[in-house]
């Protein structure tokens, strides 16, 4: 799976493995040394990103966080969305 690995602002290392189908996310796995409360929200974020286009990622993450009263530390929706874009570009220019 194409991946994007990045040390985000705040010093946490985040790795995103993502696959696309017709410019939409078909598989995604986010790993790293960040904090997210409640922790179960990460699976919901990954699930909700399936089928989304790049332009929808940030909003999807923010909505999932809001609906689950969740807070991220050391990572944010902007940096995750940016990393998904980086992974997408890697695939697009392969």
């Amino acid at each position: 799976m194409p991946e994007s690995c990045h040390k985000v602002c705040g010093g946490k290392l985040v790795k995103i493995r993502v696959e696309f189908n017709n410019n939409k996310i078909s598989k995604i796995k986010i790993t790293g040394d960040f904090f997210l409360h409640p922790e179960e929200t990460l699976i919901l974020i990954e699930t909700n990103l399936i089928g989304k286009e790049l332009s929808e990622c940030e909003e999807t993450i923010n909505e999932t966080l809001k609906n689950n009263n969740a807070i991220m530390y050391g990572i944010d929706s902007v940096s995750v969305s940016e990393m998904i874009k980086v992974a997408f570009n890697e695939v697009a220019f392969d």
Partner: peptide, 9 residues
Amino acid sequence: IGKFQSMED
């Protein structure tokens, strides 16, 4: 390892 890390990685 942290909850969101990958053991293999």
